[in-house]
C-alpha cells in the first residue's frame, strides 16, 4: 500500500456552455477521511470523474500521488474507486466480477476471497450480482475498490442502500483504513453521517470551492451561538432580547420557540430573571454540519423544490 495525496488544481469543465466545475482547487491528505459535500448539481460527480480519468477536464489538473489517473500503469493498486455499484454484469457472479478486475491489474486472485470476507459477502461469492440487494451491491463495489490494497480510496455515496448496521460498519471500516495512512475521499449527502465519519470536509457549490477545512472548523464557521428559548410570554421575550441588541427569529422546528443570536444562554437567563419572565426552555443550539452546510451553500443550490400546500379537504 503506497500513501498518496489527492491534488486538484484549477479544475474546469464546461458542458454546453455551462461551467459545471469552475477553477476548483483542493488537497486531500493521507491518513484522513475527507468528506466531499455540495448541493445537487454542484459538480461533485464531475470532479470525481475527472479525478479518475473518466472525463477529460477542459483546464487544470487532478492528480493522485503526483500523477494523473491514466498515468498509473496499474491504477487499481493505487486508487480504489466506488462510483456506481451497478457497474456490474447482472449474470456474472460476485467472485467472477472481482476476478476479472483483479486480473486486469495483475492483482493476486487470492485477494478476491480476502476482500469478499472483508465486506461480508463470502457466502454469496458464487451468486449472480443481478440478485443482489442495493446494500449488497454497494458492499461488492467497496470490495472492488479494496481489491488492489490501494493507498487512496475515492467513494461516491458509499453508504447508499446500507441499513444502519451497514452504515456503522462502513464508518468503522473507512476510519480504520484512514488510520492505516490511506487517503479516504468520500462524497456523500448524509451530513449527519459525514459529521461522525470525516476529519476534513471539502465543500463546493456551482462548481466552485466554498470551503475546505476540518469538520470542527466548519461547524463553528461564521455563526454566533444560537439559543433556543421557549417562554411563557414570547412577545415580551422577543422585545427583551432585541433591547439587548440580539437578533431573534422563530425556531423553524419548534412551535412558539424562538432562536436568539447574539446573546449567550447565561445572559438570556439573567435578563429574563430580572424582567420576571418565566422560561420553559433555554438550550444553546450546537451548530451541526447540516446547519453549516445549508448556510454555506444557500447561494449555490441549483435545484430547489417548493413546499407543497396540502390540498383542500386532505388530512394533514
Amino acid at each position: 500500500m503506497t500513501k498518496a495525496t489527492i491534488e486538484v488544481s484549477g479544475l474546469v469543465k464546461t458542458y454546453a456552455k455551462k461551467r459545471v466545475v469552475d477553477g476548483l482547487s483542493f488537497t486531500v491528505n493521507p491518513g484522513t477521511v475527507t468528506g466531499f459535500l455540495g448541493p445537487n448539481g454542484a459538480g461533485k460527480s464531475t470532479t470525481l470523474r475527472m479525478l479518475l480519468g473518466l472525463t477529460r477536464p477542459d483546464a487544470g489538473t487532478a492528480l493522485i500521488g503526483g500523477r494523473g489517473y491514466h498515468e498509473h500503469p496499474e491504477p487499481l493498486r493505487v486508487v480504489g474507486a466506488l462510483m456506481d455499484a451497478r457497474w456490474t454484469h447482472p449474470k456474472r457472479s460476485a467472485g467472477a466480477h472481482l476476478t476479472w478486475l483483479a486480473r486486469s491489474n495483475r492483482i493476486p486472485v487470492q485477494r478476491v476471497d480476502e476482500v469478499l470476507a472483508q465486506v461480508g459477502l463470502t457466502d454469496v461469492a458464487g451468486k449472480r450480482v443481478g440478485g443482489f440487494s442495493l446494500g449488497m451491491a454497494q458492499r461488492l463495489g467497496l470490495a472492488g475498490a479494496l481489491l488492489g490494497d490501494p493507498g487512496v480510496l475515492v467513494l461516491d455515496e458509499p453508504a447508499n442502500g446500507l441499513d444502519p448496521e451497514g452504515i456503522a460498519w462502513m464508518r468503522g471500516l473507512l476510519r480504520a483504513l484512514a488510520a492505516e495512512g490511506r487517503t479516504v475521499f468520500v462524497s456523500s449527502h448524509l451530513l449527519a453521517e459525514m459529521a461522525q465519519l470525516a476529519d476534513d470536509v471539502v465543500m463546493i457549490g456551482r462548481g466552485k470551492l466554498i470551503t475546505q477545512g476540518s469538520v470542527t472548523d466548519l461547524t463553528s464557521l461564521s455563526s454566533t451561538e444560537e439559543v433556543l428559548v421557549r417562554a411563557e410570554e414570547p412577545e415580551r421575550l422577543r422585545d427583551l432580547v432585541v433591547e439587548h441588541g440580539a437578533t431573534v427569529v422563530e425556531a423553524p422546528e419548534r412551535a412558539e420557540a424562538l432562536l436568539v443570536s447574539g446573546m449567550s444562554s447565561e445572559d438570556i437567563g439573567r435578563a429574563a430573571a430580572r424582567a420576571g419572565l418565566v422560561l420553559f426552555e433555554l438550550a444553546p443550539r450546537r451548530r451541526t454540519v447540516e446547519d453549516a452546510y445549508l448556510k454555506l451553500t444557500a447561494d449555490s443550490v441549483e435545484y430547489r423544490g417548493s413546499v407543497q400546500q396540502p390540498m383542500e379537504g386532505s388530512r394533514v
Binding site: L52, L54, P75, L76, A81, W87, T88, H89, L101
Partner: peptide
Amino acid sequence: TMEFRTGTIWASRLAVPS
C-alpha cells in the same frame, strides 16, 4: 454493447485507463 448497457465498461475503464 453489453458492456455499455450494464455499465461494466466504466469498471473496465477504471481498471485499464486507456
